[in-house]
């Protein structure tokens, strides 16, 4: 299909393999995600969900096919500019007990790519951090070292960092993995409202579809490195 103007992600016949592996982790993937849509990617362990997310962001490069983020080829050096419009919540977010960065500092660091030399955060950005923290119920944790928090609290912190950046695209890898039932409901609601209000896109990888399925515009099922069902042109 020809590229559209409001395409946020566009994968065209993408194959990805990890170095040293003799089989591709993702095969012939076609996927298009546009603004204002929430796409849920699901499938069993090893289906290629995380690989897909990291390929969209250009962290993994295809050896065949083309991957575009905001119209920028992920192989191009300009991909960094496209990434600045995105936020990412990684799967392996838990930090060890000795990690001493405070929650506030960690959320502030999400603004680092927008900052030039010697520049610090504006009043408005700090207010936004406070607002997002209240939204996700972590305002009392702002001055606590991240390593002293539980897995669920740490997961809320990385989600708060992602939302504070006002991204045009959210890439969330298993964002409910450490959350309790209430936390899952809250994060699902906050993310879906953000997508609608800001006309942003969200790609959520989750093997547990329950908390988010009712908000999803598109559900893509993956298995063995391939998309097995779902509308690939969201």
């Amino acid at each position: 299909m020809p590229p559209l103007e409001n395409d946020i992600v566009n994968l065209e016949g993408v194959w990805v393999a990890y170095s040293g592996s003799d089989r591709p982790a993702m095969r012939n993937i076609n996927l298009r995600v546009s603004a204002g849509k929430l796409t849920l990617i699901t499938g069993p362990n090893g289906a290629g969900k995380t690989t897909l997310l990291e390929t969209c962001l250009g962290l993994l490069k295809p050896y065949r096919g083309r991957a575009y983020l905001f119209g920028v080829d992920t192989r191009s050096w300009r991909i960094r500019e496209a990434r600045k419009m995105c936020s990412f919540v990684p799967q392996d977010f838990i930090k060890p007990p000795f990690e001493a960065y405070t929650v506030r500092r960690i959320i502030q660091l999400g603004f680092a790519p927008y900052k030039s030399i010697f520049e610090s955060l504006t009043e408005k950005e700090n207010e936004r951090i406070q607002w997002v923290s209240e939204l996700l119920g972590i305002e009392d944790l702002l001055d606590r070292p991240i390593g002293t928090l539980s897995g669920g609290q740490q997961q809320r912190v990385v989600i708060a960092r992602a939302l504070s950046r006002k991204p045009r695209a959210l890439f969330l890898d298993e964002p409910f993995s450490s959350l309790d039932r209430e936390g899952r409901k809250l994060v699902s609601k906050v993310v879906s409202e953000y997508v609608r209000k800001k006309d942003a896109a969200a790609i959520i990888v989750s093997h547990d579809v329950n908390p988010i399925i009712k908000y999803a515009d598109t559900i893509v099922r993956m298995d063995n490195g391939k998309i097995i069902s779902g509308d690939c042109y969201a």
Partner: peptide, 9 residues
């Protein structure tokens, strides 16, 4: 990895 994904050089 997070820094890279957010567009940091």
């Amino acid at each position: 990895k997070l820094a890279e994904a957010e567009g940091l050089n």
